[in-house]
Simulated assay, not measured.
Amino acid sequence: MRDDPANELAYAAWPDVPSGALVLLPIGSTEQHGPHLPLDTDSVIAHAVARRAAVALPTALVAPVLPYGASGEHAGFPGTVSIGHEALRAVLVEVVRSLSLWAGRIVLVNGHGGNTATLDTALRLLRAEGHDVAWTDCSVPGADAHAGRTETSVMLHLAPERVESKAMTVGDTRPLAVLLPELMARGVRAVSPSGVLGDPTGASAEEGHRTTDAMVSSVVARITAWTVDGRCRLVDPEHQPGTRQLDDEAVRS
């Protein structure tokens, strides 16, 4: 699949925007991703997945990416900008209400696991108001937690010039279930001074290409099937046990 600026809402003039369009809204973050990845990694991935998914979806438009999320768990690192759950919820609610004045279905394509609690609550309200909205994530089976092999491979595919390969370092590689209590209590820096949860050193652009294609295919399948669960999340028509968010959704502020 390819990127297509023709699907970007930001590029359009208002007469070119079709009434009832399917709108994909990428939700990212601005937060540390170790010493080797840029602060907007989640935003880059969410935007790329949304853009490539839109190519396969008739009448789909991609709204500008929302670059700030709930990233309090990364607050111990310079560069992180978190607006927290309350502000993020207000932004999501008002953006969807505005889009609904002219759009049809709206899908929030989330790239940061810390946003998921807010997505759940915001979209429950919006769906109760009658908006045809749901969310989905950028997920693959077996992804590591943060700034490890998975995200690094995807960024080597999407934006290799922005990956500082010489700065890659192995972070805490223990299972997230083991790390989670301390992460929730003290933040990422308490368990990984580098900010990495995983091992990025085996990452490759080829693996990133395959991973990105898998994420895009999954998003397209979920949107096409349009089955919404109790969290207002689109369900994979062929659910794969063990699938999880790139930034595991359990790691939240």
Rank of each mutant, 00 (worst) to 15 (best):
D3F: 08
D4W: 03
N7Q: 08
E8F: 15
A10I: 11
A13C: 12
P18V: 10
A21Q: 05
V23M: 05
L25W: 09
L25D: 00
I27M: 11
G28N: 07
P35S: 09
H36A: 12
L39K: 07
L39I: 10
T41F: 01
S43C: 06
A46C: 03
A46T: 05
H47S: 13
R51N: 14
A60R: 04
V65I: 12
P67S: 07
A70E: 14
G72N: 10
H74D: 10
P78C: 06
A90E: 08
A90Y: 02
E94K: 04
W102I: 09
N110S: 11
G113W: 01
A117M: 11
T118A: 11
D120K: 14
A122W: 00
W135D: 01
W135G: 00
W135Q: 00
D137C: 06
G142A: 02
T150C: 11
H157I: 07
S165D: 08
P175I: 11
V178R: 05
S194M: 13
G198N: 04
P200C: 11
A203T: 09
S217M: 08
V219T: 12
V220H: 01
R222M: 10
D229M: 09
C232V: 01
C232A: 14
E238V: 15
P241Q: 06
D247N: 15
E249A: 13
